[in-house]
Amino acid sequence: MKQIALFLLPAGLLLAVAAPVMLPSGAMRSLFVMAGLAVEVLGLVLLVRSDHVRKGSER
């Protein structure tokens, strides 16, 4: 789970950065950037959850 989380964080960044490069302007750009941020938040939640799962199994 931790590896997926660490993959999602830069993946979200790539999505956010790709928006201004690939899309000319307007709502789609904003949507892509917000989607990138959402992927990063998902990665962050997974990272915290994976830490709890690890600590739970060590208990």
């Binding site: 964080l9 960044l13 928006a19 950037v33």
Partner: peptide, 17 residues
């Protein structure tokens, strides 16, 4: 605002990993 959002994305997706 979009530039600020990309900056925040860089913090979470670049600096954190």
């Amino acid at each position: 605002f979009l530039a600020q959002c990309i900056g925040i994305a860089a913090l979470l997706g670049g600096v954190l990993p």
